[in-house]
């Protein structure tokens, strides 16, 4: 079923956790809410779950006014960062909880509950651990129990609040791939909160970038990379270099007499800041920012060079290892020339 959030605001005292947030998800979509801490992503998720009421705005789900329903009536599956498993229950009892608390007339018979628990534990690859207690499981296993528990009620929507935040990097990548698989199998509309842009880009159909309670941009991962709408989105989605410039007719002109095509909303500006990614830089012999390489580090096929200009500005540059002369070393003086840059309206203020 489709989800529609319209102008939702939520304040805590004078702090606006959500400021007129609007977004929509189609049936079966995997949506990521991405932002730094304090950006409102968890507040929004709690509004969707019914654990918190917005001050203003509407939430529609399948055309139904969601705000009128209690969390119990919404039938959404919620997965918390710290699992929130019931410690005094076995894994099987945790998973069965949502079925066992149903009123008698809606409750499946015991044998069916047991069968469904078994099926779910197979789905999350925890067969044979049904008699264990949560304390006897690893973090990754606990989170899979939490997901099975949320799926047991056949949720109309799945909400995940930084579910992999407390796990180490390797387990995280594994669970990420596996979560996407489960989503594709069950086809349930999923909203996923994360502060890890790589996770959001990797998992989601579309990403909602939040900052200070507002939506900065909504788009497919590739769209966000190709056409970030604001300086915040550009900076949040990857490493970013900055260089003052002036923009004339879609070209960023730099001191030293070189220029680069300027992408982004600003076509003409006397004072602006050009932003560019480390991998969109060439080393030039002349016509470029004169810098000194301070540090080189190998990263697979790339070499990351940290550079410092005479005025102290720092730049990060990724060079292809195979195309880089072996003589390049820390202390070398080179010139950087961005291949293309982004210029945003807000950037002028910074």
């Amino acid at each position: 079923m489709s989800l529609s959030v319209e102008n939702v605001s939520k304040r805590f005292g004078r702090f606006a956790a959500l400021d007129r947030v609007s977004l929509a998800a189609v049936d079966g979509e995997f949506l990521a809410l991405l932002g730094p801490s304090g950006s409102g992503k968890t507040s929004l998720l709690r509004v969707l779950a019914g654990l918190s009421r917005p001050d203003e705005g509407r939430v529609l789900f399948g055309g139904e006014d969601f705000l009128r329903l209690s969390p119990r009536e919404r039938r959404v599956g919620m997965v918390f960062q710290h699992y929130a498993l019931f410690r005094h229950m076995t894994v099987a009892d945790n998973v069965a909880f949502g079925l066992k608390v149903r009123p008698r007339r809606d409750r499946p018979p015991g044998t069916e509950i047991a069968a469904r628990v078994k099926r779910l534990l197979a789905l999350v690859q925890l067969e044979g651990l049904d008699k264990r207690y949560p304390a006897q499981l690893s973090g990754g296993q606990r989170q899979r129990v939490a997901l099975a528990r949320a799926l047991a009620i056949e949720p109309r929507m799945l909400l995940l609040d930084e579910p992999f935040g407390a796990l180490d990097a390797k387990v995280r990548r594994e669970l990420r791939r596996w979560l996407r698989q489960i989503h594709d199998e069950t086809g349930v509309t999923t909203v996923f909160v994360t502060h890890d842009q790589e996770e959001a880009m990797d998992l989601a159909d579309r990403v909602v970038v939040l900052n200070a309670g507002r939506v900065e941009q909504i788009g497919r991962p590739a769209e966000l990379q190709a056409a970030p709408a604001t300086a915040f989105v550009f900076d949040f989605l990857g490493d970013s270099n900055r260089l003052p410039c002036k923009v004339v007719d879609g070209h960023a002109m730099f001191d030293g007499g070189f220029s680069a095509p300027a992408l982004g909303p600003v076509r003409d500006a006397p004072h602006a800041v050009a932003r560019f990614r480390p991998h969109e830089v060439d080393l030039a012999v002349e016509g470029g920012v004169p810098v000194t390489i301070t540090h080189l580090s190998a990263r697979g096929a790339l070499i990351r060079a940290e550079c410092q200009a005479e005025d102290g500005a720092l730049f990060e540059v990724d060079l292809l290892r195979d195309a880089t002369p072996g003589s390049l070393a820390a202390g070398a003086k080179v010139r950087l020339r961005p291949r293309r840059v982004f210029v945003f309206a807000e950037a002028a203020a910074t």
């Binding site: 959404v76 919620m78 949320a150």
Partner: peptide
């Protein structure tokens, strides 16, 4: 007691009495 436990129970459909009896009291 973690408030998330009760919230988890609530989203799973437990009514207030069930939340107290099945989640809080055992803890």
């Amino acid at each position: 007691l973690d408030a998330e436990l009760e919230e988890a129970a609530e989203t799973l459909g437990a009514n207030p009495v069930q939340r107290v009896v099945k989640v809080i009291l055992p803890a």
